[in-house]
Design a protein around this nucleic acid. Structure first.
Ligand SMILES: [Mn+2]
Ligand SMILES: [Mn+2]
Ligand SMILES: [Mn+2]
Ligand SMILES: [Mn+2]
Lengths: 219, 219
DNA sequence: AATATTTTTTAGACTAGTCTAAATTTATTT
DNA sequence: AAATAAATTTAGACTAGTCTAAAAAATATT
C-alpha cells in the first residue's frame, strides 16, 4: 500500500500534468505540496522505485499507468466524500474540501462503493469537477471560463477553477451557484469585467479575475 | 494535535484501565498494540510530556483528564462510524470495525456532530458498546455475560465481549443478534455449556466459551 | 535474605518524511 | 562561447515511530 504522503504527491502530480499536459518539474510539485524541492526529490526517488512515476534526474516526472490509477482513485474518493458531506451532512461547498482531504485516504473498497451507491452514482462533485468511476474513467465537460464568452451569450454555470473558501463564499454571497443560468449582459472593454444576470433575475458586476474562475457551457 | 499513533495508544490505555480499573503495565499496552515494550516506553515518555498520561518509571500509567478526553473522543468517533456503516451503508456488524479503526482519526468536529445527528443520536454501537456523548459521558448498561445466568432466566441480548470477525459471524450463523430474547433452557453442569432458545423459536447449544462472550440483561 | 525470574527501561540502529546548505546541472544572457 | 542565473540534486541533520539487545529495577522463589 501507499502512504498518505505518497498518495498526496501522486494526486498533486496528476493535477499538474492535467493542467499543462507535460512532464512536471520538481519546483512545481514543491509549490503545490507546500514543501521544499529537496523533499520532493527524495519522494520522487521513492515513487520511481515503486514504479509509480517515470523519473529521470532533471527531466521532470510523469505518472506510470500504475501511478495514474492510484491518483485517480484518490481523486475519486475525495470528490465522492465532498458530495457526501454536501448532500447528506449539510456541509456548504466551501467546507467540504478540508475534510475530504483527510477522508480521501481511507482504505476500503466496499466503503467507497457504498458511498457511491448511497449518493446514486454522482458524476460531478460540489465544485463541478468530474468524479472518476471505479475504473478511473472521467466524464469530461467541455466548459470554459465565462471570461471567454461574449455579450448576450446565455450560459449554465458548471464549475469553478479556484476552490478557496474565500472565493466560494464570495460566489455564495453573489448568488452564484452551479446550475444557475448566467447571461452576459455587458463586457467592459477596459478591464474585461462583466455585467451578468443570474437566473434572469439579479444582475451583478464581476471582475475579470472572478470571471476567469467561473466555468460554464452555452445553454 | 495528536498523531494517529498517539490516539491509538490513548484508546488502548483507556480500554485497559476500563477492564481492571488500575494502572496499566507497559507489557499490557505492548500486547494490545501489537508492538514491543521498548516502543511503548518511548511513547509513554512522549504522552507524559504532553500531559496526556500519569507516568512514573516502572509504576504503570493512568490517563490524565486531558488524556481521557482524547481517548473518549476517539472511541466516540469509532462507534459512531461503526453505526453509520451498519445503518446507512449496509455493512455487516463483523465488517465495521476495521474501517472505523481508520475513520476514528478523522479530525472534524462538524463532521462527527453531523454524523451523530444523521444517525439520530444513537446511544450504543453495533456491538452493544455505549457511544460517549460529545462531553465524553457514557451511558452504561448493567448487562452481564449469559454464562452468569441460571436455568429459565429470560434475557435480552445487549452486546458482545469478543469483537472478532470469526465470533460475530458464528453468532450470525446461529441466529444470535442484539435485541434477541434468549431463554436459558438448560445449564450443563459438566462444562457449563448452555441450551438456549432464541426469540422463543429456535433452540441451540453453545459452549461456555461462547456464553462468556455474549452479554445480556434480564427481560 | 539471597537468588532467580520477570518486567521495564535504556542504548543504539533503522525507515519515512522533512529541512538547510552546498554542489551540480540546465537554461538564459551577454 | 563564456558567464550568470535558475532549477535540481546531494549531503547531512532532525523528528516520529519502530526494533533488537543489553542493563536495570521490581517481583517471586527458595
Ligand atoms: Mn490528502
Ligand atoms: Mn471538489
Ligand atoms: Mn485507530
Ligand atoms: Mn464496536
Amino acid at each position: 500500500m501507499n502512504s498518505f504522503t505518497e498518495e498526496n504527491y501522486l494526486k498533486a502530480i496528476y493535477k499538474l500534468i492535467e493542467q499543462n499536459d507535460e512532464a512536471v518539474s520538481t519546483n512545481a510539485i514543491a509549490k503545490k505540496m507546500n514543501t521544499k524541492a529537496a523533499s520532493v526529490t527524495d519522494m520522487l526517488k521513492k515513487l520511481s522505485d515503486k514504479k509509480l512515476i517515470h523519473y529521470q534526474k532533471y527531466q521532470g516526472v510523469t505518472l506510470t499507468a500504475k501511478g495514474e490509477k492510484v491518483a485517480l482513485s484518490v481523486i475519486r474518493k475525495h470528490r465522492l466524500w465532498e458530495m457526501f458531506l454536501l448532500e447528506k451532512l449539510d456541509f456548504k461547498w466551501d467546507e467540504v474540501h478540508d475534510v475530504a482531504e483527510q477522508l480521501e485516504h481511507i482504505n476500503s473498497d466496499k466503503l467507497i462503493a457504498q458511498i457511491d451507491k448511497f449518493l446514486n452514482y454522482p458524476k460531478f462533485d460540489p465544485h463541478g469537477d468530474p468524479i472518476p468511476d471505479v475504473n478511473g474513467k472521467i466524464q469530461t465537460q467541455k466548459s470554459k471560463s465565462i471570461a471567454n464568452f461574449k455579450k448576450n451569450d446565455v450560459l449554465v454555470m458548471t464549475g469553478v477553477v479556484d476552490h478557496s473558501t474565500a472565493f466560494l463564499q464570495y460566489l455564495d454571497k453573489s448568488g452564484l451557484a452551479l446550475g444557475n443560468e448566467i447571461k452576459i449582459k455587458e463586457v467592459i472593454e477596459f478591464d474585461r469585467s462583466l455585467q451578468i444576470s443570474i437566473n434572469k433575475k439579479t444582475t451583478i458586476f464581476i471582475s475579470n479575475d472572478v470571471a476567469k474562475n467561473i466555468l460554464a457551457i452555452t445553454k
